[in-house]
Design a protein around this nucleic acid. Sequence first.
RNA 1: GGGGAGGUGGCAGAGCGGUCAAAUGCACCAGACUGUAAAUCUGGCGGCGAAAGCCUUCGGUGGUUCAAAUCCAUCUCUCCCCA
Length: 404
Amino acid sequence: MGKIPSINEQMDLIRQGVEEIISEEELIKKLEYAKAEDEPVIVKLGCDPSVPDLHIGHAIVLRKLRHFQDLGHQAVLVIGDFTGMIGDPSGKSKTRPQLTYQEVRDNADTYVEQASVILDVDKLKIVFNSEWLGEMTFKDVITLAGHYTVARMLERDDFENRYKNEVPISIHEFLYPLAQGMDSVKLKADVELGGTDQKFNLIVGRNLQRAYSQDPQVIITTPLLEGTDGVEKMSKSYRNYIGITESPGEMYGRTMSIPDTLIERYFEFATEVPPSELSMIKQQLMDKSVNPRDLKRQLAREIVTIYHSEKAALEAEKEFDRIFISKDIPESIEEYRIGPEPVALLQVIVDSGLVSSKREGRRLVEQGAVRLDGEKITDFHYTISVKNKVILKVGKRRFLRLVP
RNA sequence: GGGGAGGUGGCAGAGCGGUCAAAUGCACCAGACUGUAAAUCUGGCGGCGAAAGCCUUCGGUGGUUCAAAUCCAUCUCUCCCCA
């Protein structure tokens, strides 16, 4: 590692877009040591193989890991296959079906594949925690558990709240942070990354390393991004996420649907815009010198560009403008064959999958959301017979080309 | 082992014999407006039906009743307190 950047330069990059570093002094020490000894710092990130689809919220922490890679450090991705095979740690959900070995492997593959958009996979060390956790005996586990107390476990906000609100916490949930901490011990991690929701677990890892006479890891937390609804955290279970494998059009549109108040955060955490530009954007948002819509357009382009290409971003933008600004029809519309016989329009809407029930279709007609070739349909008994192609439009963004 | 409180729609959370397809908030969908799928306002938000109405839903099952999310029995899961 001859050309390692200076500690200051490293810290500048590391500090970008993080919530908290515990502690900076320790990190600097580790970096200094690494530089002096020409030994990379070991940076750990754990992932949950039960959710294979990544969204741009996950990307924040992945990007941070990438930063460490760029600085010449050793990134380690820990696939939590062991914990994944046992079940769900976040007590609320019911018995999530346990994943089989094969499912976990497949998910892990998908994860790495998707993460490769952000990480340098060639330099990435990938490990499965079943390797060591699966080897532990019950006695080992008890010994491990002996390093922690219930009171300290209850320090975790989530546990504390659930305890207070009489929401069940099962014993095995206490073991998850310990298991995760064990990963750090095994890997002799210098740094562990995670979302702010992981802070507690990361600290447990730190404490366990101490218990095992290791130099405790530095923990770095990254913010959890709000979803497109602007209310909940971005998560697959609410449909408020932007998946990193989504089509450019979908990605662009979903970005445009975030509340204006989120523009700044998205710029800061979901894109690669340099700090100088970021501060300019913040300024523009504050003094309202630029229409927020235009900033959001820029944001949407940035995001699509990261996961697709600039070209795709521009095309997506064009399409978006077409539909929502010019109120035009999309460039390409799916065709749906209905034959020359007269059919109830409602039936067509349901059969084609545009809406899920006649009831819903009817509501939409009543609300004036259904148009045929631009003409509003007001009668839900409307019967259609197609001689030439017709454009069926439901709401603002559902289109179908009906062909005989 | 004993005592008590609960399981309601995507989530949170009311209801506690009929007026309950189930308040309210969030999410979601649509319309208006607009600067965008932003904000705001309005409407909708189980299914079939033109409608009347009918069917399925309040942890599972079985009852009581003209009528049950609401009462009873039982099963199951959860929480709290005492030991």
